[in-house]
Amino acid sequence: MTSNGTVKVEVGLGDRAYDILIGSGLVGRAGEEIAARLPGIRVAIVTDENVARAHLDPLTASLDKAGISSTAIVLPAGEKTKSFAHLQEVVDGVLAARLERRDAVIALGGGVIGDLTGFASGIVRRGMNFVQIPTSLLAQVDSSVGGKTGINSTHGKNLVGVFHQPRLVLADTDVLDTLPAREFRAGYAEVAKYGLIDRPDFFAWLEKNWQEVFSGGPARTEAIAQSCRAKADVVARDEFETGDRALLNLGHTFGHALEAATAYDGTRLVHGEGVAIGMALAHRFSARMNLASPDDAARVEAHLKAVGLPWRMADIPGELPDAERLLAYIAQDKKVSRGALTFILTRGIGKSFIAKDVPASEVLAFLKENHPG
């Protein structure tokens, strides 16, 4: 912890290592933190309309105070912004501002803005500096860390992108106070995920302390820091997801399929909710395959239900495509290799593992059993 109460987590990638700073008031200190690491730069700030209203002026003032000139690119809010059209808008905006390769692009927003901005900064001028200022819980604990960037395709989620690491991540805990309750809950699914992957003590701590995490204060900072440490450890071991990093996809294979099945309609399902249902399904499927106890699946479902997250497909409003169509979405997912289905399954709480060559017939039967139709 630094002198001003900020927690620092380092992502250890050798000469590309960077800090994640977690604490209060970091938007107001962004200029000095960025200037200390990237002196003499100019920046483009990419944000969305909702975030801009709350946080763009304080960020711009902080940059001005540090002598950093900035231009803002404000996009529509929502998952559908992760598109080729808005990628072009960001790239053109950065080039129109005459920013050079040594300058930086700042993502001020949630996971959508972070993913899109990271991709743009990774390809414009063949790669520019990139700073993440995540404004949602989901982005602070997951998508802002690790350098996975991208946009969605009509074929599925996050299928187009690059690995491009940020130079700095500023996770201001104060900005979470402006989040709608649904968005905070959705981000909490990614926090719980770290406990379910390989930190059973953390999951047990969350079961006891989740209400304090939701209400703010030290427990919230601790949960974010623990999540960032967990992700930083995995990224340092496996930056390009050739091995262990795939564990971070716990719940995501089912979750991404459900997002695609709802056409990325945020009124029906947002990413963290898809992950929550996906984690419950992964534990239930593991029990079906006699890998884990049904009691573990019930425990995961009970915790998700307690915090107000959806935990089964029936919790998604509206009709879903049939099980065969859901399986087709799963088969399009990036976790597929040469047509074989790969899932993150579990042998118990905090005992996740990469399961390759999962029979499609077993997955289809499971989807039929759990389909609300």
Results as ranks from 00 to 15, higher is better:
Ser361Leu: 02
Leu116Val: 07
Phe119Ala: 04
Leu138Tyr: 03
Asn209Ala: 11
Lys208Tyr: 02
Thr178Cys: 11
Phe353Arg: 10
Pro359Gly: 00
Arg182Gly: 08
Ser3Glu: 13
Glu239Thr: 08
Asp238Ile: 10
Trp311His: 15
Arg229His: 14
Lys231Glu: 07
Asp322Ser: 11
Asn50His: 10
Ser83Leu: 05
Ser69Leu: 13
Pro218Asp: 14
Ser153Phe: 14
Ile344Asn: 02
Arg284Tyr: 04
Gly217Asp: 14
Arg126Cys: 03
Ala219Trp: 00
Thr178Glu: 10
Ala236Trp: 07
Glu32Pro: 12
Gly278Cys: 04
Gly25Glu: 02
Leu95Phe: 12
Gly14Lys: 13
Arg167Ser: 15
Leu326Trp: 07
Asp357Val: 08
His371Glu: 05
Glu100Tyr: 05
Ala276Met: 08
Thr346Met: 11
Phe366Cys: 06
Gly266Leu: 13
Ala96Gly: 08
Pro372Cys: 12
Glu319Ala: 15
Arg268Met: 14
Arg288Trp: 14
Glu49Arg: 15
Gly156Phe: 00
Asp48Leu: 04
Glu222Trp: 05
Phe285Asn: 00
Asp296Cys: 11
Gly146Gln: 13
Gly25Val: 08
Ala260Arg: 05
His283Gly: 02
Ile34Tyr: 04
Gly156Ile: 02
Ala232Lys: 05
Phe240Leu: 14
Arg268Cys: 08
Ala246Cys: 11
Arg185Asn: 06
Pro359Ser: 04
Met128Phe: 01
Ile123Leu: 11
Arg185Pro: 05
Ala35Ile: 04
Gly318Ala: 02
Thr60Val: 15
Ala230Trp: 04
Arg98Leu: 11
Arg299Ser: 10
